[in-house]
Write a protein that binds this DNA or RNA. Structure first.
Lengths: 173, 173
DNA sequence: CGTCACATCTGCGAAATCCGCAAGGTGTCG
DNA sequence: CGACACCTTGCGGATTTCGCAGATGTGACG
């Protein structure tokens, strides 16, 4: 099923190849953008339907989608409200660091409870979102795992009370 | 990638109705959770493959997925790195409110540049994530649109410098 | 200028998947 | 018991996916 061949990955664009991670964008053209929009509305929409919408053949759409996935420009995934999946405690943690900020960010990235890590300008060096099953779990992650990282000067936690909005419509405006 | 397995999990799940008795609206059982996990790995995975992985028939998976989508428990969508789609400035904004917090949160929710709104405990009442095209746009949203909302006492912005991690694997642990 | 290398699109069968439907089976609950 | 919810198996037909061959376009280079 699903051979997944990855075949190529082949370079594709002469200049990029650095791709993924937040480098600079492999410059998406209008067609790829339109394809992404289609898939933001429905991640399972058939290639033929997308092709009709963006003016490409089914095969061409398939190739472009595969490339976008290979390059890491987009992912097609199921997203849920963590609460409905059994994670009852979430928090954003602001962190101040002395020394190398990036290494701390990397350490956070390795924690499975950490969903989101971003380096920021302002009164925090790093913001990290934590998703936990209960209070004990959250307490453990913040106090034992994060505060104990060498270089973490201080942390401030914002426990989530109510999630009001969460969209994935970048580019669909 | 994903060379693996599927390994059936065989097993009867006819007793599963007792677990996951969360007070939440659409309580999910273990099987639905497993389905969601499958779709978090690949939103386009065929129903038959999912069925093999979670121990259900293709038809049953199809029904469950449809219901999960109808109920709004999950969405299957393409997600992208905003940078690659042309949004170059992002920020998290912490907001303090006097009066009704929820109405402010609702007002933020209505702004298309606001991706994420959550009410929190701690030194901010609300955290909102803003996605903009450039600095001017960001400045405009924060200063003109957010700070001018009646009831907003103060705001503090954290401009994103580097996104290190962003996952959608809730439940996949 | 010719042409090689490569990326991309199109067309087209073959295989696989999706999807609705029907005919049970089983467990819960009032 | 009967209603109900949910799963299973099985089945075709419509649709989609997938690989591949062929056509086209473009940049690099001798």
């Amino acid at each position: 099923m699903h051979s997944e061949v990855v075949a190529s990955r082949s370079a594709d664009q002469r200049d990029s190849s650095r791709e993924s991670r937040n480098g600079n964008s492999p410059q998406l053209d209008a067609v790829s953008l339109a394809i992404i929009q289609q898939l933001q509305e429905d991640g399972r929409r058939p290639y033929a339907a997308i092709g009709k919408a963006v003016g490409l053949s089914e095969a061409a759409v398939r190739q472009r989608v595969q490339k976008l996935l290979d390059q890491g420009v987009m992912q097609i995934v199921a997203v849920t409200d963590p609460l409905t999946v059994g994670f009852r405690r979430q928090a954003m943690v602001g962190i101040n660091v002395e020394g190398d900020v990036e290494s701390i960010a990397d350490a956070l990235t390795d924690m499975s409870e950490v969903e989101y890590v971003v380096m920021t300008a302002g009164s925090f060096d790093i913001l990290a979102e934590i998703v936990c099953e209960d209070d004990d779990h959250l307490l453990d992650v913040i106090n034992k795992r994060i505060r104990s990282l060498p270089g973490v000067r201080s942390t401030e936690s914002f426990v989530y009370l109510k999630l009001k909005k969460q969209t994935y419509m970048w580019g669909t405006r």
